[in-house]
Design a protein around this nucleic acid. Sequence first.
DNA 1: TGATAATCTTCCATTGGATAGAAGACGATT
DNA 2: AATCGTCTTCTATCCAATGGAAGATTATCA
Lengths: 247, 247
Amino acid sequence: MSVQSVERALDVLEALADHGGEAGLSEIAARTGLPYGTIHRLLQTLLLRGYVRQESDRRYALGGALVRIGGAAERLVGSWAEPYLAKMVELSGETANMAVLEGDFVVYVAQVPSPRRLRMFAEVGRRVLPHSTAVGKVLLADHPNAAAVFERTGLPRRTDRTITTVGAMMTELSLVADRGYAMDLGEEESGVHCLAVPVADGARVVAAMSVSGPAERISALDRDELARGLRKIADDFGAEVFAPRPG
Amino acid sequence: MSVQSVERALDVLEALADHGGEAGLSEIAARTGLPYGTIHRLLQTLLLRGYVRQESDRRYALGGALVRIGGAAERLVGSWAEPYLAKMVELSGETANMAVLEGDFVVYVAQVPSPRRLRMFAEVGRRVLPHSTAVGKVLLADHPNAAAVFERTGLPRRTDRTITTVGAMMTELSLVADRGYAMDLGEEESGVHCLAVPVADGARVVAAMSVSGPAERISALDRDELARGLRKIADDFGAEVFAPRPG
DNA sequence: TGATAATCTTCCATTGGATAGAAGACGATT
DNA sequence: AATCGTCTTCTATCCAATGGAAGATTATCA
């Protein structure tokens, strides 16, 4: 049995989030089905505590307290991913990683290593350019202005398989978006293959998960079957941790 | 008149945030003064909606829904800053900017231009290296691992006043931390001076605000008085938008 | 291994806080 | 000035939230 008023307050916040962060009272009423007086009282409480703001045109917006609390929550995401990455290791036998975009760079935020003696390792905290990694391609495939990122960072050659032009990369990202996963077949490091899938919060891609290992071992796996399995795990993670849960 | 249950739910979230994002029920009880049964019921509601998670050791943690909603709120921060930047323009007569750290780069997220015909301009969205800007020094002065950032980005010379070694930069950042503001005296661009101050959420520096203009005009201002005035405005912004407001 | 302590979870009688319709206020439009 | 759309305030009613007690679970200690 949950607390109705708290559920309603969360409904109001979700309604604001669904409207690009700000809305009028009548828009919130339409979305939540709550009466004006009720919404108003909930909003005043959230306003008092900084979780909501009121603009000069009387419209309401999400408030700065959510940036602060959201930042605190964000620092925990890596630890939440570990059981899911462990499943990916179980499925593939290879090291699994999760990465996020930080500015123009890919940053590894969680890892579960393969039990094998010969295994990939990328220390948590390591930052790399996005163009030559599978996780980078997944993160940029959903980016509003991926071309600009590549123009800023460049696409320096890492191996003789690296994609080095913005044009070729944009073509590659279309392919990634279409099929729902990215491959790195020795683009970042010779002899290493990697397959990555997106993690979404219901609306946006917030992270990428991947498995990587020696080219021979990854090539021996059924690529589409592996991608399907990894996507299932990543989708479960995204749905379990980030996606909205209506009351 | 606010909604008590909503305030209590927010108290619980703030208690979790104050404990590094996770805590046991008794820690939350100690911090909020609420009875166990009440807290438990509030937590179950937040759990149901993904705003809180329960770890395997029965402890509670902030949840992924806060990352999602917090991200939506974060995209509005630039627009909230504008009235405060306008005050900085009024105070100094010069263009005022707000910037945040995105990975290793400084990104300008809001600006109010000076009314003068000769004025500084930095388009919103522009990203620069942190070493040669006043805002960059402010943001790195509070950074847990600033030296590593500079080692990654390098400190390329922009003008003959640019600081180009990590050692000299770390000394500079100590000075910035001590006196609470940073200066750029022609380090990024010859003939341009800039003064920047931090914006805090109560615990961390989340942004920097600055004014910049021609060297002669900025030099003609009383530096410490200007810094005091800018800090007051930035502190008001941080307190108004981000800082916790106990019920 | 059993006892104890600390912490967490569930229950439910009581009551006071939340509700929501109505009325009034405000701002935009004609 | 009148009208419309939207927002704000009020308050009688009632049901949702409370919180103490009891039970359950986990950790610690001898």
